[in-house]
Design a protein around this nucleic acid. Structure first.
Lengths: 251, 251
DNA sequence: CGTCGACTTGAGCAAGTTCAATACCGGTGG
DNA sequence: CCACCGGTATTGAACTTGCTCAAGTCGACG
């Protein structure tokens, strides 16, 4: 679950790893690949949709890299409420932060291929290879920054701002991956989005239709979002002009 | 800002580092000391109340350890809204997650002594000493788990649950440090608490008085909280027995 | 064609925010 | 010594947002 989606704030200047954000996407292309290179090739396992890769509290045995599909990382409260902490896409690592036990659960959102690296081997290497330790450190640091961004977004922003920020994060992820930044495919359900943004499905749904009516987006089959007015969406997210201007005025 | 305050959920079993929580306090006594031992002795600097140690976006130059006083780590939104990400107490490290730039600001809440360690030196050591890299990795991983806990608490719990969880976290911290677990000193203002829990000062204040009226706590000068009924506070936090029982009754 | 799961939409409600007034505390200066 | 002041906390009343509950829609699949 390498984080990298510059969510809310815009403080960052293009390549500034420390400040990547609580995105629903990830990929941290550089570092993740970096990490992959220093890891011994692992086994690939396939998980069915809604199958758990691991659960909160399980002893940590492996670190995984998503090869295909997508994964929800979440924390649960005993009464069933849950908080999705990140969505992981192909190329992303998950379970990096687990030292002894997993502090969150990982659930395949669809049929998902995961390459797994035994933790024991990883730690063995890290004991000798200082560079790997540093890389792990960097990777988790990014996740931390992402978690802080998500925290910021979820606690201090309205439903509309949250959803707008979410869509923009996915859009940015797309352009980073060379895909269309205006056509967003939502592989996750409304429930997942709600649990990520700290809202209910109803509110998510209503906010989607509100955006559609206002002409910010187009919706097809609940799965495909087309951004019609990127600038307006930025404003709806609360980053909009104000933030940009502040940066420009400050410099 | 080494996290360690087992906030909300009670999934954890006493010594299970991966799952320490988004506490307002910290201290991770073991690891922090551990880390301190492998660091070269740094310079001590004194910061006045409300003085920034660093700001979001600043180039990261040092890692700090709180020697006396306390520090708020926060993220800000352009419009002034802010989210306190952690309160750091003596013994805690801050700025560990910053690789190139600080992803959050650090503000002294009172006159505060900070021991600072130049980042360059730290990285230099880590390049050779694999153990240090691993320690940094572990430390940041704990912070990450803490951030996730805070996220959980702040998004899915009511004002009462949040404040109760906050007080309990401080109480636990006290007992870990050998202090009275029923007498809690709040060095931070209501505004700080509000910005940490994602509420307004008014709501924080009202919730305090509600707890006082219900006999859960006593309040003196806004600074000193005495916990009268620990069990009831646990229940108010949503951890207590209730959650368990509710599940059992439901099934 | 019917059923199931996921999504949408509506109406009423409750929790927390906002705005505004008041109280409290420590420090300063007449 | 007391009055005043600024910053902080408390309290009240109106308002807003998003939640809850409930009904209805849509599309896939057997």
């Amino acid at each position: 679950m390498l984080a990298n989606t510059d969510y809310g704030t815009e403080t960052e200047q293009s390549e500034q790893p420390g400040h990547e954000a609580a995105g629903p996407s990830r990929a941290t292309p550089l570092r993740a690949d970096d990490l992959a290179r220093s890891l011994p090739g692992g086994m690939v396992r396939v998980f069915a949709a809604k199958e758990h890769i691991y659960r909160e509290g399980d002893p940590a045995t492996h670190v995984y890299r998503v090869e295909a599909g997508h994964v929800c990382i979440y924390r649960g409260l005993p009464d069933g409420r849950r908080q999705i902490v990140s969505f992981s896409y192909p190329g992303d690592f998950i379970a990096l932060g687990a030292i002894r036990r997993h502090s969150a659960s990982a659930l395949a959102g669809a049929k998902t291929h995961m390459r797994s690296y035994p933790l024991a081997g990883l730690q063995e290497i890290a004991r000798h290879d200082a560079a790997l330790g540093l890389r792990l450190y960097a990777a988790v640091s990014e996740e931390l920054a992402a978690a802080h961004d998500l925290l910021m977004t979820v606690t201090h922003r309205s439903a509309g701002e949250r959803l707008a920020a979410f869509l923009l994060a996915l859009s940015r992820r797309n352009s980073r991956c060379g895909e269309n930044e205006r056509e967003i495919v939502l592989p996750m359900t409304r429930t997942d989005i709600a649990d990520f943004l700290g809202l209910t499905i109803e509110t998510v749904s209503r906010t989607f239709t509100k955006f559609r009516i206002e002409g910010l987006i187009d919706l097809e089959q609940c799965i495909l979002v087309t951004i019609c007015d990127l600038a307006a969406l930025e404003i709806a997210a609360g980053n909009g002009v104000s933030a940009r201007e502040r940066l420009e005025l400050a410099s």
